[in-house]
Every structure is written in C-alpha cells, then in structure tokens.
Simulated assay, not measured.
Amino acid sequence: MATRQSVDECIQKCEDAIRYAQEQYKSGTQQEHYHDQEYTQAMQGVEEAINDVMNLANSANAQQRDQLHRMRLQLQNLQNEMILLDHDPSTVGGKLH
C-alpha cells in the first residue's frame, strides 16, 4: 500500500518536472532551443516522472490511483507537446537543409 507521504512526494516530483519542462518548452518555442541539453534533460525528467507515477499507482488505493492517473495524463500531454515541437536544427522554416 502506498503511503500518503510517498504519493505526496511523487506528486511534488512530478510538479517540479512539469514546471522545468514547461520552462524549457517555452524557451524552445521562443528562442529556437535546438537540441539543447536542458530540453533533453527536461524530457528525461518528464519520462522518469511518468514511470514513477505508474510504479506507485500499482500499490495505491483507488483515490491515490485517481490522483496519480490525472498527474500521468498531465505529464504525457506535456511530453507529447515537447516531442512535437519542431526543434530540429536541420530544419528551418519546415525545410530540410
């Protein structure tokens, strides 16, 4: 059984990952942060948070699973947005060089 503290800590870690990833995403859209190390780290943080949520959900009660499920959806939505952001340096204006 997941403890309340473990769920709270996981949610906090997820919120931190989301905040950092959103900063990097915003920076990437405004400044064309192509293949930036921080962007990659943010994506890895989101992926780790998703895995943590999924692992913790296995030992959570129904209310905790619901809370973790909503967090996972937020993380996956952000992950998808980050993946879809055109930040490939080999393309400028949508054309390959």
Results as ranks from 00 to 15, higher is better:
Q30W: 04
L84M: 13
I11P: 01
M54F: 00
A60D: 08
M71N: 00
V53A: 15
N77L: 03
A17V: 08
I18A: 00
A60N: 08
V7I: 12
Q12E: 11
Q5V: 10
A21P: 07
E32W: 03
N80I: 01
Q44W: 09
C14P: 07
Y25N: 01
H97W: 06
N80H: 04
Q44H: 09
Q74F: 02
L84G: 07
Q41T: 04
S6K: 12
Y39A: 02
L75G: 06
I11C: 03
Y34V: 12
S6Q: 15
D16A: 14
Q79G: 05
V46L: 15
E15Q: 14
G93D: 13
A57D: 07
Q30F: 04
L56P: 01
A60M: 06
D86H: 10
H97N: 09
Q24V: 12
Y34F: 13
C10L: 14
H69S: 15
S6P: 04
A57P: 07
D66H: 10
E38W: 05
S90L: 10
M54S: 09
A62M: 09
Q5F: 01
C10R: 13
N51M: 12
I11A: 11
C10H: 08
S59G: 14
H33L: 12
G45W: 02
L68T: 05
P89I: 02
P89D: 05
Q31R: 10
I83S: 05
R19Q: 15
G93R: 00
A57R: 13
Q44I: 09
L68K: 03
A21E: 02
Q37P: 09
D16G: 13
V92N: 03
I11N: 04
E81A: 07
C10V: 15
T91R: 15
L85Y: 13
M71G: 03
Q37L: 14
V92P: 00
Q22D: 09
L96P: 08
L84T: 05
S27L: 14
I18W: 01
V92D: 03
A42C: 02
Q67K: 15
D86I: 07
G45L: 03
V53Y: 06
D88T: 00
I83A: 10
N77R: 09
L68V: 01
L68C: 04
N77E: 10
T3V: 06
M1C: 06
I50L: 08
N58L: 14
H35S: 12
L96Q: 06
R65M: 15
A42N: 08
V7M: 11
Y39D: 07
S27A: 14
M43H: 04
H87A: 12
H33S: 09
Q24F: 00
A42F: 03
K95G: 01
N55W: 02
Q64M: 08
D36K: 03
Q76L: 07
E15F: 01
Q37T: 14
A62C: 03
D86M: 10
Q64D: 11
Y34H: 08
K26M: 12
R72I: 01
